[in-house]
Each structure stands twice: as structure tokens, then as C-alpha cells.
Design a protein around this nucleic acid. Sequence first.
DNA 1: AAGCTCTAATTGAAACGTCAACCACTCTGC
DNA 2: GCAGAGTGGTTGACGTTTCAATTAGAGCTT
Lengths: 154, 154
Amino acid sequence: MCTRWLTGDQQKVWRTYLLGSARLDERLGADLQGSGLDLPEYEILVNLEESPERRLRMSELADAVHQSRSRLTHTIARMEKAGLVVRTTCPTDRRGVWAQLTDTGFTVLAAAAPGHVAAVRRNLVDAVAPEDWEALGRVFAAVLAVPPDDASDA
Amino acid sequence: MCTRWLTGDQQKVWRTYLLGSARLDERLGADLQGSGLDLPEYEILVNLEESPERRLRMSELADAVHQSRSRLTHTIARMEKAGLVVRTTCPTDRRGVWAQLTDTGFTVLAAAAPGHVAAVRRNLVDAVAPEDWEALGRVFAAVLAVPPDDASDA
DNA sequence: AAGCTCTAATTGAAACGTCAACCACTCTGC
DNA sequence: GCAGAGTGGTTGACGTTTCAATTAGAGCTT
């Protein structure tokens, strides 16, 4: 593997991204203070709310919010204790579990959403030039399209 | 605060970003496996390596790697135990502490760097069209330029 | 030089995430 | 219809991060 370092310009962009994405996270998290939610929990609630019957299998949910299964189990356990979701075993596949949004969960989400959306706008959407915004979409679509490391090299 | 939701397109980009940046993190972290470092530790070593005398005040370092001071204290404590850095109190301001890269730390960094750089290339730099890459820089520069929430609104 | 306030960094406990082992169920092939 | 392999999800132990409180020194004001 011949090491090709990043050029100065590439490094600048890379570091701006590291700092900027961390800042974005921080700001969005700070904004959710008071709703009692953190960002990952908020994402869980949104995904449930948009799903038919307001419920999702644990593993579907895990993929949707890019959490490990184990982490999701812990997170949902906490959220269930807080009354935001309930778990029920899936009748057609008895290994499976549905996480379902409760009315309380919906209420909490509804209360948090406007502030969160405003924060996303202020800290990202409205801060960015429209052409650059579209490019942002292409960039991360490209990232998601990168094949895993073990792609057969035979 | 009149709630302006995101448009469908805006949402799509936003979610692509959420998923994509999480994936990027995951891939880069996976790549560092074997060097014994994780991403935040790697960033710490890089920042120290580039600084005069290979050392930095704790709070400068904390800003550079966007970690809370408390987190950095814990992280550096671990890294010191591992021999990657040493701490010495700053003679001109006796409250202050320098974190300094050791030779071992440098060696570990040097061993990890080529693989890490390759991973950054593969998963981001090389995956993205050049125009979009520049836009990425502008996007996060804009994020970093957003003023804090408490900007005087009097 | 005493008192105030501010900044630098640390501490310890509680909350959270990760990892490897695990249980329970389904599916396949014999 | 049963063994073996595979999937869905959970558990508990361990390491990391967060949060509030704390120590210690700097710097200003009187």
C-alpha cells in the first residue's frame, strides 16, 4: 500500500468537516435539552412515528438509526421505562420484537420537533448555499455507496 | 416561533447526511482497529505531533479535537498510562498542563497513519466528485460560522 | 495583602455504549 | 421430525463519556 497523503487542500476540508460535524452535533444536542431527549432518542421516535402502526422491528429500527442492536436494546429499555415506547413480541416471528410509539412518546416528540427542526435549519440548512446543499446530499450518498472493505479482490 | 418544516428534498439530504456521517465514522474506526487507537485518540496524537515541541495545553487540545475538558482529562490519563503521552505542568501558568507526545506515541501514530489516510481516501475523498468536495468544505465552514444561540437579540 | 472572580484542570459517580456470550426461535436438509 | 446452521434480540460485565462538584492558581479591585 503506497501511502498517498492528503494534499493541503484536502486536509483542510477534512478537518473542517471533522470540526463542523462535531459542532453540529453539539448544537443539535444542546437544543434538545429540555425535551429530555438526546439526538439518538429523537431519531428513534421520528422513525417510529413515520412507520405503519407507529411500530418497527428492533433490527429495522437499528438500521434506520444506525445503532448496534445491543445499543438499541439498551436505549429502548430506557425509553420504555420512561413510557415513550412499548415492546411487544411479533406474532408471526416469535423471535422478533416490535418497538411501538406510545401516545406519551408521540406527545414528547411533537413537543421537541419544532425546536429541533429550527435548530437544523439555523445550524445547517439556512447556513448553506443552495448549490452546496445539493452537493452535500451527493457527497454522503457517495459515502454510503462505498463498498465494504472486504469486497472480493480476487 | 412559526414552525417551518423541512421540505422533502431537504429531509432527504439531512437523513443522507446522518446516515452517511455515521457510516464514515464506523468505517474509519474499524480501520484503526489493530493500531489500538480509536478515532478521538488518533486525532489527539495528530494534533500533538503537529504542534511545536509536540505538546499542547490541555484546553487547546480539547478545542482542537472538540472534546470536553473533562473527557480529555480521562482520555489523556488513559493514553498516559499507555505511554503515548506525558503530562507536565506548565511553568509560566502553574494551573496549566502540557500534554506531550512521547516517542512511543509518535511511533504508534506513524504506524496507524498510512492505513487511516487510505481509509479516509477510500471512504470519502476518492468517492466524491471534485466539485462536490469543495462544496463540502464550504458547507462545514458555514456551519462553523453560525453564531451561538445566545446572540444578542435585543 | 485580602477578598472576588475567573480560568485550568481534575475527580468520582452515574449514565451510556461496546463487546462477547447467550437464549429462543426459524429454517434447511436429511 | 430432528440436527445443525442461521437470525433476532437480550444480557451483563467492562470501558468510556457526561455531569456536577472541586482544587488550585491567576488576576483584578480595594
